[in-house]
Design a binder for these strands. Sequence first.
DNA 1: CGGATTCTTGACGAGAATCAAGAGTTGTGG
DNA 2: CCACAACTCTTGATTCTCGTCAAGAATCCG
Lengths: 235, 235
Amino acid sequence: MPLKKRAALATLPPGFKSTFLDGLMPHEVRALLKVAKSVRISPPKVLQQEGEPAHRLWLLRTGRVAVYRLTHDGNKLFLRWGAPGDAFGFATVFRAPARYLVTVEAVQEGSILVWDAAACQALISRYPRLSEAVNCAIRKYLDRLIDMFGMCQLQSTEERLARVLVESAGQLGHAGPEGIEVDLKNEEVALTAHMSLFTATRHLSKWQRAGLLKKHRGKIVLPSLSAFKMITSDT
Amino acid sequence: MPLKKRAALATLPPGFKSTFLDGLMPHEVRALLKVAKSVRISPPKVLQQEGEPAHRLWLLRTGRVAVYRLTHDGNKLFLRWGAPGDAFGFATVFRAPARYLVTVEAVQEGSILVWDAAACQALISRYPRLSEAVNCAIRKYLDRLIDMFGMCQLQSTEERLARVLVESAGQLGHAGPEGIEVDLKNEEVALTAHMSLFTATRHLSKWQRAGLLKKHRGKIVLPSLSAFKMITSDT
DNA sequence: CGGATTCTTGACGAGAATCAAGAGTTGTGG
DNA sequence: CCACAACTCTTGATTCTCGTCAAGAATCCG
């Protein structure tokens, strides 16, 4: 019997951490998972497009997504990576129809849990706390964005890059034999730190020569983060 | 009797426009105003400090405020001006205690309407729609911030400055005999456009020589915005 | 092995911040 | 009414960070 019940739930990978779900009570989380639809995603699938009416709330279960905004002239303004546990499409929970603020695109194979607009309305009226959880999540995004803005405004490329390494290690990194491994190409690191590919490469090379990290194709290995935390904080 | 009723309301200046209040029904706005406390503000009074527990929701009635965030080393990261109609302290409406995300400081004489935490709780439970209005307001802030970030990342100082003039004219400007007058010093304009005082002055001087604007001490007069809109959009 | 992708390094230049010095404007007190 | 101080604005000279471009090296994959 318990087995059957668990089979009906959308399953979460082991070690799954979600700031959004953490804002809810366990029984609310269960209720959410019970009605979630699981969908596989593959790059370069666009999962939501800015400006379109929000029709679904979703949670990244596995994989990685890129969050960006399109400029009037078609360029992409990169905002951040989305990792497992990140939620999107908060605009869906409003009674008043709202539109997506940003575009989100899959960059790795993975899967998401989806709630359509009808499911959101039902959940919201049954669990009012959900509205507050959404609110907190949006506030967190705002907070992070202000931080990033400040970083870009008043820190040098070197400081920014060091900080990006530390944060990426936490968000995307996984343990390896020689330290934390971060699966990002130089181009992606540069995007994250909002600088040119060449500037990023130069600093990374310098740090490799200094023995602070080891670079491979599409991957950076960080034996220790302390040196980068130093670079970040002092000036 | 109607007169007595109106006297009990917090009064709004003529021509008052608030995106936040516009998200509510007229009767809800009346209910809010009925329990609001009016408070006078003078520079350089800090109206809320980032990191402190949010204890009041408030609306700028008259005057001007500066919204910024403090960096670890004590610098101010300017975010935007607040004009009459702007609301702050949304963190107050959460059941879960939250903290202010930004610091807000008065830069002109003026007045605000205030709701303390208790009043917010009472209003929220009586008018659930208020929660959604707050949500929308936060989303709007997020949207504006992404815009500003994009502007700083991928537009030149000249384009940024032109855009700031257009937006400031709308938000802070008032009609004058020779065009829209914006009461900002060069230093404040530079702050708004996130560039150095000197770079801002140079562009403004150039535009004055071209006859696109007239400068006075602490004030800029814009006969027409069309030229600046041109600079903003084409590239 | 050949082709595609990713990374590296150097040379160069544009854009914008900084610094310095002075001119113009406003307000105050004698 | 004038003199002086404080504030605001202007301009030029200088410096520097960082983006762009070019060319080639290293790595991976079929």
